[in-house]
Nucleic acid binder design. Structure first.
Length: 341
DNA sequence: AAGGCTGCCTGCTTGC
DNA sequence: TGCAAGCAGGCAGCCT
């Protein structure tokens, strides 16, 4: 399942092929992959149709409207270099020449609602979240179909020619969207509105170590839960949370308040190590769920010490790794090395 | 306010 | 063999 290393591998893989490319046409095969896409309202401003958000089934008519809106507004856009925050990835876009001449096109809104500089056009981005099983696949324009392709973009790159950018997603927890870029809370850069609440990741040079350690040690809930909280630190999912906790020898249910400053720093360092190593090995693939933009698996699954290894010996002490149900998911840890005190 | 719970979804695995 | 239930889990919105 895509966490920081996997999303970063995909982002880096997309960069050379999409940067500078123009979207020739778009084809939404399943509007459920547009969960995060908010179509333009009757006033011509991006609004909320009040339908089909997270955890809500998208009504048929709303799906048709969203698909049409997305296809129309994405066509003609010129793609910039892909970026990432946590598990969110986006491609800033610009309107291509001649876009306005499209028959029947409604102008893309140029201003943000409220107190913004109304003379300055809004910057938009093609936002992607891979969810559990999302994939961004770069294919030759005439390549055979992959399974579960939900949205297809035909793009034309000045150097690489015509390509297909296919968003495939078996379980539909992921989605694409056209979103607006807004100043991040710390003012350092522009990020999509839907990712404004996402913290920086531990590999981000601007990550606030002190702030994170303070927040971690102030909260009474279990430390694994805190690691999974994307507003504290981003990019961590179930796999890397278990792996970082194993490396730092911390029981997943240890309250944040029970972690000393040294142990907390050790955990952050473990998180960075596991992310860095996984990134170098191309991410974690168990089955066909996670692949890079060429459909290839990563190798980090072979380097896992705790996740998915219940019953197998702990690489440190030899005691069998246990798996406990926690927050509707599995928690894997060594009962000897990671004791709850 | 912080924390807990729910639903979104498909395909594979397990159980009867 | 066939069907049903269970499981995998990120995220946002709701509730307490």
């Amino acid at each position: 399942m895509p966490e920081l290393p996997e999303v970063e591998v995909v982002r880096a893989g997309l960069a050379p092929a999409v940067t500078g490319a123009t979207v020739i046409s778009a084809e939404v095969r399943d509007p459920r992959a547009l969960k995060r896409h908010l179509p333009l309202g009757a006033d011509g401003l991006p609004g909320d149709d009040g339908l089909g958000g997270h955890g809500v089934r998208l009504p048929f008519e709303a799906g048709v409207a969203r698909a049409a809106d997305f296809e129309r507004r994405v066509t003609g856009l010129v793609l910039d270099a892909p970026r990432r925050r946590g598990k969110f990835m986006w491609i800033p876009v610009e309107r291509g020449a001649g876009d306005e001449s499209q028959p029947g096109s409604v102008p893309i809104p140029l201003v943000e609602r409220g107190a913004r500089d109304e003379s300055k056009p809004d910057q938009l981005a093609l936002l992607a979240h891979l969810g559990m099983s999302g994939q961004m696949l770069l294919r030759a324009h005439d390549a055979p179909d992959d399974r579960h392709v939900r949205i297809r973009l035909w793009i034309e790159h000045p150097a690489h020619g015509e390509l297909r950018l296919d968003f495939a997603d078996q379980r539909l927890f992921g989605s694409l969207a056209l979103d607006r870029l807004l100043p991040a809370p710390d003012g350092i850069d522009l990020i999509p509105g839907q990712a404004l609440h996402i913290a920086r990741d531990p590999l981000d040079p601007a990550f606030d170590d002190a702030g994170f350690l303070l927040a971690l040690r102030r909260r009474g809930v279990g430390v694994k839960k805190l690691l999974l909280d994307q507003t504290l630190v981003s990019g961590v999912g179930n796999i890397y949370a278990d792996e970082a906790l194993w490396r730092a020898r911390i029981h997943p249910e240890t309250p944040g308040t029970a972690i000393g400053p040294r142990k907390a720093r050790e955990l952050l360092s473990a998180l960075r190590d596991v992310f860095t190593q996984a990134l170098a090995e191309g991410g974690t693939s168990f089955d066909a769920q996670y692949v890079n933009v060429n459909g290839q698996a990563g190798y980090f699954a072979h380097s896992l010490n705790a996740y998915g290894r219940q019953g197998a010996p702990c690489p440190r002490c030899g005691r069998p790794i246990v798996r406990e149900s926690f927050m509707n998911r599995g928690s894997h840890f060594c009962p000897k090395c990671q004791q709850l005190r």
